[in-house]
Design a binder for these strands. Structure first.
Lengths: 244, 244
DNA sequence: ACAAAAGTGTTTTTTATACACCCATGC
DNA sequence: GCATGGGTGTATAAAAAACACTTTTGT
């Protein structure tokens, strides 16, 4: 009788993966001053009827980024967005579709972080209302480990805002300084800085252009419309400048 | 005659992945003041005889982090190390083993960033000298997209050093303030800060304990040995403190 | 004694913070 | 006129940068 093979060949011991991309899509409702996350109600098992981050499995010939953009485009129409990779989650057992004997396919999630303009975003809801904005502090239980991913993204948003000009990705092309301030307050909390100090620091960076055009938002003195000067920012790209 | 099927079933269009883990392992030679990266000469195709980052393919039941630790343990013996995930690279075609028709298996690399103590690290060289430290500014051509990964890790190291106490992971348990300074200079460049200012800033953080023990390194006044106070650091963990 | 390295302190400059106050508009 | 929000300036505090100086060792 033959003895049990001591070691499998190398390829037999390797895990086979499907790779998913999950997006943490943020936007800021500047009217009600709240941070929103796009969630999707799952229509299929596992976690059927459970809310989750919008995601998809990566297809043949498709890059991770392409998969991220595809998911985004399936759920939402935007004119402009910021997208970057967040983190990869791949512990065995993070997806219930994996067989518990650790044979069979594994599911790895490469998460992406996105920021879109709330006003310009149009949710695509095919018949059933299964895609929706949720306030970041009122998130329901999420499928898989998506609460962990969301939390990771939320921290990235707060950090990134302080040293990188992602705010101008979610603001309209022309904006008042107070709009920028409101955005920062909404994400970082009320007391992150005094308005007039925020103002002068921001202007001193030299990356905003005053269009000269004034707009009146209700009562009070009309505000100047500014425009992000991406040319002026280019040389500062890798510098450690602070936006707070 | 049957027409060609319009759409494949969902699972047929999905890419199948093997997931690799590639480590960017840094250490600092405090004697010669240089930053080193651990490279491994490949003994198998593809890129046979080419230098590469130490990596491995993830096995069944193995987490990404475990795979990273396993690779590390295969190449090097260390007493202490810092490890964190870096980035995931997964464009189709990044590994020549993939078939060009975009069918067949894809190779995704989840990269990890590690920092080890040079003096305590012992390279494991099984017979052939295929694992070696390379100065970070004298890196040969690397296999796959490993030059991109290495560059990503190098930037992470320089950034992380400025707001997180990873330096104390690569220093011996007891060290002089000048040794910390040398380490920072080696990684960030000569003129990142004045020694005496660096010194007082570091001490003001309150995370170093003076052991009172003095050591003499050649000529000059003996220096105090300090010890990292991880307890004092714990409450500061999530604060945005600066170490420069 | 003197060079070399550790450690302290001081001066100057810059930046952050907290406000006070003027400006332009709607009502 | 006055409330409202936009915009400017100023006084104070804190931090960063530059550098002078003292201390303690080896030779």
């Amino acid at each position: 009788m033959k003895t049990k093979p001591k070691a499998n060949t190398k390829s037999e011991t390797l895990a086979d993966f499907k790779v998913g991309v999950d997006n943490v899509i943020f936007s800021v409702d500047t009217v009600y001053n709240r941070v929103l996350v796009l969630l999707r109600k799952r229509t299929e098992e596992p976690f059927k009827n459970c809310w989750s981050l919008p995601g998809t499995l990566v297809r043949r010939g498709e890059s991770l980024t392409d998969a991220a953009y595809r998911t985004l485009a399936e759920k939402i129409q935007v004119d402009n967005l910021y997208l970057e990779q967040l983190y990869s989650f791949g512990e065995p057992g993070r997806d219930p579709r994996e067989s518990p004997d650790s044979f069979g396919v594994r599911y790895l999630s490469v998460s992406y972080f996105a920021l879109v303009r709330y006003e310009a975003a149009r949710i695509i809801n095919k018949a059933n209302y299964s895609v929706s904005w949720y306030k970041v502090n009122e998130i329901p239980n999420l499928a898989f480990d998506h609460d962990k991913i969301l939390n990771y993204g939320w921290n990235r948003l707060k950090n990134k805002l302080q040293y990188s000009p992602i705010a101008f990705e979610v603001l309209p092309p022309e904006f008042t300084l107070n709009e920028v301030y409101q955005l920062y307050c909404t994400i970082l909390g009320e007391n992150f800085s005094d308005y007039s100090n925020f103002r002068s620091r921001l202007l001193k960076l030299g990356i905003l252009l005053d269009t000269g055009v004034k707009v009146s938002r209700g009562a009070g003195r009309p505000a100047s419309l500014y425009r992000f000067d991406s040319e002026a920012f280019t040389p500062l790209k890798d510098k450690p400048l602070l936006f707070i």
